[in-house]
């Protein structure tokens, strides 16, 4: 899925997958920070936005 989305032009840093057990609090915290930072660095999404005001 990630490979397909990157193929159609979604930025690599926007989609993240992780496997975290309920006991892995630190991993969860670290991953959230990482994801947030990476997405922030990319800025607001440019694709896959549906502006309801335009369609409706």
């Amino acid at each position: 899925m990630k490979s397909l989305l990157e193929y159609v032009g979604i930025e690599p840093g926007r989609l993240h997958f992780s496997w975290i057990s309920s006991a892995e609090a630190t991993k969860f915290q670290e991953t959230v920070v990482e994801v947030t930072e990476s997405v922030k660095a990319l800025g607001p999404a440019k694709h896959m936005i549906k502006d309801i005001r335009k369609v409706a």
């Binding site: 990157e6 193929y7 159609v8 032009g9 979604i10 930025e11 690599p12 440019k46 694709h47």
Partner: peptide, 16 residues
Amino acid sequence: AAPWEKLEPGERWEAF
């Protein structure tokens, strides 16, 4: 099989 792989990541969405 994957013609858009040759494009820069920034150009792919437009091609798609």
